[in-house]
Nucleic acid binder design. Sequence first.
DNA 1: TATTGTTATACTCTATAACTATA
DNA 2: TATAGTTATAGAGTATAACAATA
Lengths: 146, 146
Amino acid sequence: MSMPSQTRTDAGLSTALRVSVARLARRLRAQRADSSLSATQIGVLGAIEKHGPMSPGELADHEKVKPPSMTRVIAGLEERDLIQRAAHPTDRRQVVLALTDTGKQTLRETRRMREAWLVQRLKELTPEEKATLRAAAPILEKISQA
Amino acid sequence: MSMPSQTRTDAGLSTALRVSVARLARRLRAQRADSSLSATQIGVLGAIEKHGPMSPGELADHEKVKPPSMTRVIAGLEERDLIQRAAHPTDRRQVVLALTDTGKQTLRETRRMREAWLVQRLKELTPEEKATLRAAAPILEKISQA
DNA sequence: TATTGTTATACTCTATAACTATA
DNA sequence: TATAGTTATAGAGTATAACAATA
């Protein structure tokens, strides 16, 4: 009972979800300003950590950006010595990107420090609300990958 | 039992949520390209519909953008005759923005047409997954407003 | 003086198109 | 010819700083 009327239908859920996701993304982007890595840059570091060294093309697919965008994301990470290039063993067109030690360390620190705002917001939620978000996150991922 | 390890803690949930929200927002933005209104513009139309005529400042607060950004958002909506300016009854500095008939109609159509992609993704979900997102959307809103 | 809104300017992130090197 | 990646350029959305009008 008493569910907001707009979320009863697929179309209504779509609206509610789109608006709320866009607003939170904007809020997170603004909050992030004091740090130095973009969401995509963090995503790239995380993807390499999780799946091992990858090529720019694979990273672009994984993060759902186009190759030229990934080139810039990578350039920023290289500048900070967070990732390192190596030649592909058999295909000289390709490049393999791996985390540096600094990258691994920074990824860990960044995860902790940069998320202070969101962590604080999460602390203000009830256990049930957090459980809902825990369940929702992978669904949002699945939607994004479709 | 078998919950992704990263989401067990607040910090882990924070990471998972931030990444998934950022990725879906990017996906929605890309998907939106064939339409003509930005997420914030839709948000403004929706806010006026829901709460009645509002000033630019109130809309900026509501949508969590800065006043100069809202000025631009509003300019785009005025250009299309979706909203209309009126003088504030008592404070001549202020402006009151209301939906035009075209605006009301466009809001309705846009909600249906523009969300084809997301609606399709939602259709691919199980009822349980949709219920989770239905529950999650207002929590995301609450976080954004904090 | 303080507040509302706008103008001027710049930044971040992403995209498309064209190019280079390799397969 | 096709593919991987880069360079060049542009566009969307937002921000900060400075300004005008009104309170």
